[in-house]
Design a binder for these strands. Structure first.
Lengths: 342, 342
DNA sequence: CTGAAAGCGCTTACAG
DNA sequence: CTGAAAGCGCTTACAG
């Protein structure tokens, strides 16, 4: 059973393809009667325009691409949901690709999306990404590009972020406020801007409170698929290296939960011995025990906002209006829970 | 900067579009020299075939659609990852849509995918879906359709599932084995096959062990976005209704975790007072305390398997070979943890 | 109000 | 080995 085409409708009604097309698209220059007939027949035949042909003509695909480091991840899946829900409202479809924190893969995915001729791309960078030519390629093709969460300052495109530095400062300040004197930090990978910013916020909070900054208290996690294990490993290492740490600010909730699990196993009491603050407010953090103090990062809203911005730029380009990159910063909040209750 | 076309390459080399097309596609009837020239120029111009045009000609989109009830969900996001990873290997892109457990939305999403002319569709049904005309529409268009997890027995298409009945039986038997005498069940919504099967497995295990089946011990959860809250609510209700329950088999981990949270709050000890078995083995279940005994459901593998089956059918249709619906049942396992330690 | 015609960028059967 | 031509199914500027 072949799909119905405009031609078939035209033949059955003995009118031209042109008129059928116009009737279905509510052009004003079609008689009411004709329009009625066309629409009725289209309905009974269950006509659906061939998107390939439409796209070829209009040079629009009504499809956008999304590249993210990992999918099985509370924050990122929330973002996906936000993007899809907003895209749906505007009649856009979303193709999702995973970079797996690899620069090579990310580059390949961008390439794929470009050759697929999506109308725009939303991306959160892989940890390994230090070269941005693939992104500049997108921009030079005049395709809207929006980054979120893991961004590159240097790339000239719109960004949806949080103030990582401020949030990390807040988290660390909270540890100081409850009396911690030796505060460690489990940071993210070296390249991503957000893990740099969180580290800087941590450091500044220490200095502002006249606490010495000690590099040996900073541990690194790649925060990929192995987050939980990295948290455990770092926690163990920390105990071997230091016996006076009383607080830790951790880059991601999942790593924090790994650390808590290890501390639990080793008999370190939270928050009595060590207080912990995570980052992202994964759902899990509210149900483990002790519940985890963390920074709430609005994933769903971030997704929605990213799509809205992308949509604006798609429209702007279509109307030949200039588009200037916009940096949108969403609010975060410290969620106090048991892991820092003193 | 407009994208490069075959025509431009042809003009620059003073040959025909036909030859360029053939050269790029490794047709044997092009001279080595010409092929070399074409490939080189295509590379320097960064030529990328216009997929719209290619699709229009070949009637293939190399794109598949995926409809799932919810995205922010450990099991489903694992499935997504499985599908995407496998699709990538075969050069397919995945468009993801969410049904939000609503039949109306699901129908609309299927419609969208059909008019997008995807090469095939993978779906896990919404709880509300009792009418299957939208799915039969897919089948009657000779589009491959693969269901997973939440399936409808009545629809004639391939399915990737687990043996829910057996798994539920195993879970309940485990509760019996550790000495539970009054075992409640928090089941899923009424329509989905998997929640029916899990219920039947629970019931059969009771009867096989000479324990009476008491309908007042069965509570319902819709298992949508509110799973956690439903778990809490049901747990509370259960305590009000009964004072002799010593075990619960719960349809989904997230609901189980809600129940555990409520029991915790109300001073009911797990597993001393009530033992609990969940379903799905969400990551979370291994880190909460007590850790949750559950049924491991292989999401990633399910996704991979579903795509593989879909791909086979896409190929079969392309080659005009008959395709017979296949039911693939994946293995599950009981993961014993603290919530049933006696 | 209606329609003939051009064209989007490709693929492929066919002729030479 | 090369290329002219038809055609995939639409949209739209233009003529009447």
């Amino acid at each position: 059973m072949k799909p119905v085409t405009l031609k078939e409708i035209a033949e059955q009604l003995n009118i031209s393809v042109t008129t059928v097309s116009k009737a279905l698209k509510d052009y004003p220059d079609v008689s009411k009667k004709t329009r009625g007939l066309v629409r009725e027949l289209a309905k009974t035949l269950n006509y659906k325009p061939n998107t390939f042909a439409v796209n070829l003509r209009t040079k629009e695909s009504k499809t956008i691409g999304l590249v993210i480091p990992v999918i099985v991840h509370h924050f990122f899946s929330s973002v996906i949901k936000g993007i899809i829900s907003q895209a749906e409202k505007k009649g856009y479809l979303v193709i999702i690709l995973q970079s797996n924190e690899s620069y090579e893969l990310e580059k390949k995915q961008i390439d794929l999306l470009l050759s697929q001729r999506v109308d725009g791309i939303i991306i959160s960078l892989a940890n390994g990404t230090a070269d941005f030519s693939h992104l500049n390629e997108v921009i030079s093709q005049k395709k809207p590009l929006v980054m979120f969460d893991k961004i590159a300052k240097i790339v000239k495109c719109s960004k949806v972020i949080i103030d990582d530095r401020k949030a990390a400062y807040l988290a660390t300040q909270h540890l100081v406020d409850i009396g911690c004197k030796r505060i460690a930090h489990f940071r993210g990978a070296l390249l991503p801007q957000n893990s740099i910013d969180r580290f800087l916020g941590y450091k500044k909070a220490l200095l502002d409170n006249n606490l010495p900054y000690d590099p040996s208290l900073v541990y690194i996690c790649e925060c990929g698929d192995m987050s939980f294990e990295e948290g455990k490993k770092n926690a163990k290492q920390l105990l071997e290296d230091h016996d006076d740490v009383d607080g830790i600010f951790i880059n991601t909730d999942l790593v924090a939960i790994g650390a808590m699990t290890e501390f639990n196993k080793l008999g370190v009491k939270i928050p009595e011995d060590i207080s912990i603050v995570g980052f992202s407010n994964w759902f899990m953090s509210s149900v483990i025990s002790p519940t985890l103090t963390t920074i709430d990062q609005p994933g769903f809203k971030m997704g929605k906002t990213a799509f809205k911005q992308l949509y604006k730029e798609i429209k702007a380009i279509k109307n030949n209006k200039p588009k200037t990159p916009k940096i949108i910063t969403l609010e975060t909040a410290l969620v106090k829970r048991e892991s820092t209750k003193k």
